[in-house]
Design a protein around this nucleic acid. Sequence first.
RNA 1: GCUUCUGUAGCGCAGUUGGUAGCGCAACUGAUUCGUAAUCAGUAGGUCAGCGGUUCGAGUCCGCUCAGAAGCUCCA
Length: 587
Amino acid sequence: MSQEQQVQPYSFENPEFREAYRHTSSHILAQAMKRLYPTVKLAIGPAIENGFYYDFDTDFPITPEILEEVEKEMRKIAKEKLKLERFELPRAEALRLAEEMGEPYKVELIEALPEGEVISFYRQGEFTDLCAGPHLDSTGRVKGNALKLTSATGAYWRGDSSRKMLQRVYGTSFQKKEELDAYLARIEEAKKRDHRRLGRELGLFLFQEEAPGFPFFLPKGMILKNKLLEYWREVHTQAGYVEISTPILLDQALWLRSGHWDHYQDNMYTTEIDGMPFALKPMNCPGGMLVYKSEPHSYRDLPLRCGEIGLVHRHELSGALHGLMRVRCFHQDDAHIFMTPEQAKDEIIAVAKLIDQVYSLFGFQYHIELSTMPEDHIGSNEDWERATNYLREALAAMGKEYIINEGDGAFYGPKIDFHLEDSLGRTWQCGTIQMDMQMPERFGLEYTGSDGEKHRPVMVHRVAFGSIERFIGILTEHFAGAFPAWMAPMQVKVLPITDRTAAYADEIAARLLAKGIRVETDHRSEKIGYKIREAQLQKVPYMLVLGDKEAESAQVAVRTRAGVDQGAMDYAQFEAQLLEEIHTRRT
RNA sequence: GCUUCUGUAGCGCAGUUGGUAGCGCAACUGAUUCGUAAUCAGUAGGUCAGCGGUUCGAGUCCGCUCAGAAGCUCCA
């Protein structure tokens, strides 16, 4: 971490320069806040993707008006071309300086630094701030008209919800105004792909005030859901899974036994039946346990791959809700795999491959996280160690890259998570493979081994889509609502040009319908351009424009939603092409 | 849940210093039959999220509640 401010060349192409540029922007923000509001306490301000932020402790809310003022002051500081000087201090002196400056958060940050760490400060004019750097050599390098403060929100100090909430100011900063404008335009474009917006525009699903976090699926959304499930059943049947269904409302005693009551109660909806306490299932596993236990098992049955499209309810915090991405009730494409410990590694690999296969169909990029034992957990450290090792070994055997998410496992076991991105680059956990040695223990699961003795199986909980609702949200943003033909709510829109071709249009539509193709005919007395526009906005994959010419020659004029006029072709040819596209699930 | 912001017809928005609501699209009706992203005309549609307060008078000011957005925390 030496003289990074000297990096060449001065271009965003250079990641170090980019990092320094953002750090410096962040510090200019801190300096501007201090100038305008000397009483604010500084916390921390890292560079982040596409920008930076800084946390402040203020005794007033940072409103949009204040944000504007601060932005103006930042431009001023950039113009002043203040030299940034780095200096390092031994711990004791660093602490003294932070205390003198009256910055309690900085004091805490220094105290938290490991022994022997270099403690650096940067001085820019009258302003000094604790920071590891890197920084540019002058505030003048930051282009004032290419920086923008984008939002102000709250953020807990040190990410701890039991501590004080600070005011966080987010900003972004570029070398040229055109780059800033391009970035802001890109964000605007991405917002047009927002699944909440498309869900309304395309009539897929909706939310109502009467049911916060509980989605309503409309006919077109149901087609998406059902097509996904059709596909899911196909690949899972091939992979040797069977399917069950268990109740959503179960006796509290079951939840006590599974550990959910002690470790997941805050997220559970409860009720009473005939005076007895019941709870809506937040997970499918206990029901699956009861099914396994309902009959004796032999080692010959294992691995037993038991799938369930389970409807679960979880009381998520109101502020955490986000369209279909985080809801309070959703369907998991769950499965519980019961097996011998020796089978664990291969099964985990098989599941990871299955998930990869599913994601590849949609062209998704994903990243993997390995989440380890949380503080609040059941089971012994040895069990956790073994379970985590099964997951590690499987990942290693596949040569998969992954990051470790320390302490983020489920209360009953460690997990491998598959994360997908939404249109704004936020990532959402979808697939997960969870190793569980606790439920089999708690429920006393057994199988008879080849030695005639009773043994305890281990088990894996796994989902591929994760939440079907969330997956549909991701899919919607990924395809910007233009779903592949096989899952598109409407596949073909038949557009007669005049009433003269109405009968021919009906005939074509009937033939498509007979082949199981989802088709609609627009008989309104509108101009063809208008009908096309509507079908286009609804992102229907194919439009068949039918005029006198087509009717006479038994042809169809094909237009794709990409705006390509494919011209007239024989109906049979179109039908064959489309069926092929659908059956191969082409994207 | 927390911080900030938002809430006006199905959707997207106007509504100036408080004087009891408008525009575009959609819908409906009529005319139009027009070959690859918007034909014209007319009609209808709103307890201005809800409740309470200030005021002669509130969509506009204040309070509370609900819902939504961004972020934090949490998580599929």
